[in-house]
Design a protein around this nucleic acid. Sequence first.
DNA 1: TCAACAGGATTGTCTGACATTCTATCAATC
DNA 2: GATTGATAGAATGTCAGACAATCCTGTTGA
Lengths: 223, 223
Amino acid sequence: MQPEMNLRILPRTVQQETVDKLRLAIFSGVFEPGSRLIESQLCVQLGISRPSLREALRSLAAERLIDLVPNRGPSIPALTWEDMTAIYEARELLEVEAVGRCSLRIPKEQLSELEKALSAFAEAASSNNSLARVTTAADFYSIILANCGNPILEEIHRGLVARISFFRARSMSLEGRAQQSFAEMQEIYQAIAAGDQKAARKASRKHILKAMAAAKESMESAN
Amino acid sequence: MQPEMNLRILPRTVQQETVDKLRLAIFSGVFEPGSRLIESQLCVQLGISRPSLREALRSLAAERLIDLVPNRGPSIPALTWEDMTAIYEARELLEVEAVGRCSLRIPKEQLSELEKALSAFAEAASSNNSLARVTTAADFYSIILANCGNPILEEIHRGLVARISFFRARSMSLEGRAQQSFAEMQEIYQAIAAGDQKAARKASRKHILKAMAAAKESMESAN
DNA sequence: TCAACAGGATTGTCTGACATTCTATCAATC
DNA sequence: GATTGATAGAATGTCAGACAATCCTGTTGA
């Protein structure tokens, strides 16, 4: 067994569960962007006390998944297009780098995992389940980021993707976007499988630019 | 007045003050890496209640400035050299990009601010105040990041630098490192002032690699 | 020497309380 | 009619105190 393996079993605490539940709720679009949350209501809905809820809210606020203005309480961020652009640009920077690194070092069995994830996304893309599309796509990236050799890149990337999940779900619902997305991801996969760093980076950059364009389109059509 | 200017006056809440105080304490090396903190003690020292403290700790944990293991309480992360390398690599990616962007778009008055920050660092570098060195260096970067045109890059960079502040302070105390650091920063400044993106990126990359080497050296000499 | 076992210390969580701050409504004024 | 002012209700910020669950440490026993 690898010596650096962490065997500690983490007890699930109430506020950890709360963070996860709220995070998932935000991803799923349960809360309208810009809408305000009310502590007392959330306490009742989640069946927990206010101190526990408030601790969970602090975590989410630090992740930027909610806004927390003193004396006004928590609310769901309403991202502007400028915010979104900045996030997509940062994501591009990290993801292209990660894909490039990944293409040089991914082990075989992880590559087959990546292929499986790609197939899963293909299936979700043909379905009508937009949450499944986003989660399977996230799985695909998560394998890439986990094999880029830098856990910090992975961590930051996860945080960024989380912040735009709401809009990713919406743009994935655009006519034909999921299929196109699949084609782009396939291209990335093939470049990684071939160990061709340059092609991998190029495909990755192209994919993100398209995704950003799709997000912009879905955002404008929503208003 | 710019329409997007945010005029809201943010009341300073107890736990915000607490987060700031603890953050500063961590930066200053008040706590030994790996050491454990005890809630009840912190409450007394900070003069606040346990719920408020715990909320502040959640924020810091989400920023990765402390570790928070269930049933064991908060502790200061003891970064390994691998952790540090990963952080420095991510920092390089972001900082080089930011410097490059900044060189193309920084307005004149911000450039003079940058020059001032550089002078301030020069002064600190000749002094014996290692905290001043780190903070003036941080001011220098913060101006660059604020003018790179992407607030997300700025935000992520700030988080990364915060996590390695302890070791930056130590490596800045290495014989001659501060002076060398100043020379490298001057090079970055000149490339930005000249609007030479390529040179700016190159200087930035060089600076970080040197900083990483210095950090490694100081880390090894400490053990 | 090592394992089981207390006991104290520490954290996780809750309840309840109160002061402060926000917000929405409505009256009063220009 | 629009703006200002005042007021009541709601929501948040903060605290104190309590108790169970868990961790840690030193001691006992084999």
